[in-house]
């Protein structure tokens, strides 16, 4: 005879209550299609996003990173499970969750100032004209674009466009910043400069920030916690890594920090191992033909003068 299990004890009742999460993801599942053609992109995502933290989600391309971010932004709704922001289900995009994409979605006919002002005017329509103007200027200065405020997007470098997107989002004063690989289209040097910039701004404002990245070093530099997104299909979250490094952080100094080195090794090893496992699982299922290499040497090259370029 089997009867119901004993009720679950509530161990949290006796502890000082932890601060409630600003965003809660509970058993979130998201896929596309239906029936036999259905593919699950994300499965069983559980995550608490803490108020004021910088959280990095680190994953491979094709692991559902963008789907994950669109769920948080409210651009997609979960098939199963719930996403709560301050206790309320997220049902649609809202200005309290600001999203910055890899591809800057600036309006090409507006200047830097115009692009930022457009958002500020729509969100803070109850403010006076003067207040809104001062607010726009403050954020142009914050991202170091005062000298370029009159330029249009096509007159800006990639880094400057991304600064503009960032200023536009920050100026809307969202409760949560969502950064979807904001720097991955930039070259290494620009990327490093913008990382420092984002870090500096975040350390001033301490807004809750969720950033998706594929770069372990970038994640460690900026984040309080790092969650790996295991490769899909059916991507799931790995364990949370705590980044216990003092702030403000400096990339050069970190290179000599023992915690940094160990953490870098731990996350890299974790990601390499999950990827290997998912490849092995894939290979075990695939029915690719096998080839035996014939014993053949290339023909004498002297007959050839044309390059074969790869």
């Amino acid at each position: 005879m089997t009867t119901e299990l004993a009720p679950e004890p509530n161990f949290l009742a006796k502890r000082p209550a932890p601060p409630p999460p600003i965003i809660e993801m509970r058993g979130v599942v998201k896929g596309y299609g239906s029936g036999v053609t259905r593919t699950e992109v994300l499965q069983n995502i559980n995550l608490n996003i803490r108020e004021g933290e910088f959280l990095a989600v680190c994953g491979f391309s094709g692991s559902g990173k963008t789907t994950f971010m669109q769920l948080l932004a409210g651009l997609l709704l979960p098939d199963r499970g719930v996403i709560l922001m301050e206790g309320e289900p997220i049902a649609e995009p809202a200005p309290d969750r600001g999203l910055v994409f890899q591809n800057y979605s600036l309006l090409p006919w507006l200047t830097v100032r115009g692009n930022i002002a457009l958002s500020v005017d729509s969100v803070f329509c109850q403010w006076s004209k003067g207040e809104r103007r001062d607010h726009v200027e403050k954020f142009i200065t914050l991202v170091g674009l005062s000298h370029a405020a009159h330029r249009r997007p096509h007159e800006l470098s990639g880094g400057m466009r991304q600064r503009t997107s960032l200023a536009r989002m920050l100026a809307m004063k969202p409760k949560v910043l969502l950064l979807d690989e904001p720097l991955s289209a930039l070259d290494a040097l620009t990327r490093a400069q913008l990382q420092d910039e984002i870090l500096r701004i975040w350390e001033e404002e301490r807004q809750t920030c969720v950033m998706i990245t594929n770069d372990v070093d970038e994640a460690i530099l900026v984040a309080d916690r790092i969650v790996p997104l295991n490769p899909g299909p059916r991507a799931s979250l790995g364990p949370t890594f705590a980044v216990d490094l003092p702030r403000p952080r400096n990339r050069t100094a970190l290179n000599h920090n023992a915690t940094f080195k160990n953490l870098r090794g731990a996350i890299t090893n974790y990601l390499v191992a999950v990827r290997t496992k998912s490849r092995d699982d894939e290979a075990a299922q695939s029915v690719a033909p096998t080839f035996v290499l014939p014993d053949l040497r290339p023909k004498d090259l002297r007959a050839y003068s044309k390059a074969i370029l790869n």
Binding site: P298, L301, Y304, S305, K306, A307, I308, L309, N310
Partner: peptide
């Protein structure tokens, strides 16, 4: 000059 004895990947 170039030749297939040197493979290149860009």
């Amino acid at each position: 000059g170039p030749g297939p004895d040197r493979g290149i990947v860009f």
